[in-house]
Nucleic acid binder design. Sequence first.
DNA 1: TGTATTTTTTGAACACTGTTCATTTTTTTT
DNA 2: AAAAAAAATGAACAGTGTTCAAAAAATACA
Lengths: 205, 205
Amino acid sequence: MSVADRKAREKEALKMLILKGAKKLFLEKGIEQTTIRNIADEIDYSVGTVYVYFKDKNAILHDLHSIGFQELGGYFSELFSIENPMERLRKMGFIYIKFALENQEMYDLMFNVKAPMEFLENSNNDDWDEGAVTFGHVKKTIEECINKGHFVGHNVEPLSFMVWSLVHGMCCLQIRQRITGVKFTNPDTILLDGYNEYLKIIEKL
Amino acid sequence: MSVADRKAREKEALKMLILKGAKKLFLEKGIEQTTIRNIADEIDYSVGTVYVYFKDKNAILHDLHSIGFQELGGYFSELFSIENPMERLRKMGFIYIKFALENQEMYDLMFNVKAPMEFLENSNNDDWDEGAVTFGHVKKTIEECINKGHFVGHNVEPLSFMVWSLVHGMCCLQIRQRITGVKFTNPDTILLDGYNEYLKIIEKL
DNA sequence: TGTATTTTTTGAACACTGTTCATTTTTTTT
DNA sequence: AAAAAAAATGAACAGTGTTCAAAAAATACA
């Protein structure tokens, strides 16, 4: 085990430490309220050090957004054992909403905050792999549904996009505080109630 | 016409001038990139003056968000002449998407940016009237659809919320740059293609 | 071992942000 | 024309992300 190897490991470890500290503060006080100085203080390093390991704040937010997708992958893992694609589709949306509600700040970072996408634009890679993989799960499941005779007359990709938008829209309205003010009859369950209307609809297709 | 009246009119005029300048800069360079100093420069007043007419930046963003809802109302106005509620519902979603795509920065401010909601929280009024009115149009139309025998077995409010979320989710993914990276077969029409899948579905309900 | 070299860490400094408020300028009243 | 009220100002404050010469620590070599 060479010194260079150990240094590489230590570099990786410090990078993870920064991300860990950043995530802790994000969950505690929100993304916008967390500063680089906060993060540096949290892990007992100087601001300068943070900038040695990350190009800028967008880079931190992008890496954390990727970690969010790993966590979403954990939530999704139980789906792969479900053979029936319709049942899998129903559960996928439910788990998606569950993840969003239990990890609001992370969900926001993954699907709403501009920083991770700005990071991608300013790198030579303009593919959003994390998003593509997740959307791939929806598309594949709906494709299987169609192969089993469901959704006659529909197109896989647009229908998948519609389904994604439906659950994403609900999570978005919740997380960005657009639900409280509208005075729903039952604001606490409106997300699940709305999702149930969707379930009733696809039942018939 | 008393002096006090004229002063009140002038105060209102300057307030509108600030909002007009702010909106211009928002559309030119984005909300986050626009500073109070920018706005003051744009209308040839000092920063201090802006703070005489607006409590803080959130107040400007909230007033501009209200203006956005007025503009959405303009788009919606042609809906009121449509007697058939199903046809009105179809067109409402289409117009909603049209507004969002033609006024992305304003839509973002109205439905995504946190500032207008923070302004409401810090005032004694925790009702989001603009959102409630707009959602009311969806609810009323769907209620009429149900009265005409559509959407059997569905509940008005959750179904309306689901429909809102569906179109909002699509606009959101577009505006927050989550579509480009996923590499859709036809990224330019995916919003309308997705909306057409929804139209096909409600056709049968 | 002790010295030279490389790597890592530092924090002061820069240009910017939203916000405040004593002071100045302008307008109105008397 | 002087006094009072209203409106506009911009320097100053505490904060932001970011940079980079200098210091500190770790490694390599003698």
